[in-house]
Design a protein around this nucleic acid. Structure first.
Lengths: 224, 224
DNA sequence: AATGAAACTGGACCGCAGTCCGCTTAGGAT
DNA sequence: ATCCTAAGCGGACTGCGGTCCAGTTTCATT
């Protein structure tokens, strides 16, 4: 592809045990956590696959992650990859899962201003910046993991963001169409847009930050 | 890859002659209108391909438009389709070309409030609604014609929208980061988002309209 | 320990987007 | 009318995402 560079998963958390046999990579491959309970062999293969995928990304960029290559690198059949992750998007999203959960935990239960305790406007401002940082940090992967248009908003994590923003907006502008407004705000944080602005247009991150802060101020009717 | 730059530069073009082809399609299959001058056989094939594509869409929906099917239906080889339109997205975009040009002509040189003559805020409001209507009207095709993430904003027509909104914003809020703000506003009109809101969420069009009007009011600091 | 069935596996298979390259043809120049 | 060459052509080919299904493995039950 075009840009070789890539960022390894950039997850804040971790100390993982050294890799030995079926365990952990750079990316947190954590527990399935939504998959109720995997059969032992399935769990082992899942871990192998995620590990292989993150290695391939590190080596060849997100574009180099073909399903066959991942399967081969993990020493399993291609069908297994699809059974476990549904499709390519599902695999890539799984790689981002830990980071997504961390963010979600932060804005739902972490310390202010992101978490509860701060005024809603402050939380909203902090929320956008947090999302922005996360996306910028993982831009290539975020881009590659972008599902097809019609499913983009259906993913549970996306819905969680949506719900959270809606909730904050309701506290700030009870009279407004907060659901719709939330979608609008989130649309301005779209990874594809961020990528375009920073790469094609060369806008520095600070400009995007200011843009978000200004947008929030305007939309909520508060001062910058 | 340098496929002939088939799409237009962003210059205003004018109402094209009425199209009369076999089917009276919603879609215009009109003349190339910008391609310097195609060899006779190439021009003929181009027309055949567009006609075939629009027929296939009518029959099987946008998803049924495979490059091979279009080529076969038009009685040409597959390579010809790619040579002419670059890729699938290019073909679908070409089908939308006339409608795009019309809109562009309208907001650049048409009657107010869309065209020049009305106050910038009114123009901006009208602009968003016009875009909204156009997208809703052609949702499936717009969705299918959505290029891969990294190219979404690179298309000349998209740039034209961007430039126009930026220009209007500069007249309304000279101090603001109008370029960035323009991207934000346009992001809220993304076909994928519109599709999600209207189809998955079941929001009626009127709600989206109100949303846009409200957003414009907020962002420009004017009254609703 | 034996058993049965659900869960899992892997690789052959399919359809489609996109590339390649040798052949054909349009159409200007002479 | 003839020639010349760039433009156009088409279909074989590649690579990938995704499906399918016959065979294998796990594990709860007895």
């Amino acid at each position: 592809m075009l840009y070789a560079g890539f960022m390894s998963a950039a997850l804040p958390s971790f100390p993982q045990p050294e890799e030995s046999l079926g365990t952990p990579p750079v990316l947190d491959v954590g527990t399935a956590s939504d998959e109720p309970c995997l059969r032992a062999d399935a769990a082992r293969n899942r871990a192998r696959l995620l590990e292989a995928a993150s290695r391939l990304i590190a080596e060849h960029g997100a574009a180099g992650v073909t399903m066959e290559a991942v399967a081969a690198a993990a020493g399993v059949g291609k069908g297994t990859v699809f059974r476990r992750f549904g499709d390519r998007t599902g695999l890539l999203l799984a790689l981002l899962d830990h980071s997504a959960r961390t963010l979600q935990a932060d804005f739902m239960g972490g310390p202010p201003p992101l978490g509860p305790g701060a005024p809603p406007v402050d939380r909203l401002r902090a929320f956008g910046l947090a999302v922005l940082y996360r996306y910028v940090e993982q831009l290539d992967l975020q881009l590659a993991a972008q599902p097809e248009a019609s499913r983009r908003f259906a993913h549970p994590f996306q819905q969680a963001l949506q719900t959270h923003v809606t909730m904050l907006l309701r506290q700030i502008r009870p009279g407004a169409d907060c659901e719709l407004l939330a979608h609008t705000l989130l649309a301005s944080l779209d990874p594809a847009l961020i990528s375009h602005l920073t790469r094609q247009r060369g806008m520095p991150l600070e400009r995007l930050e200011k843009g978000w802060v200004d947008l929030v101020a305007r939309v909520t009717g508060t001062d910058v």
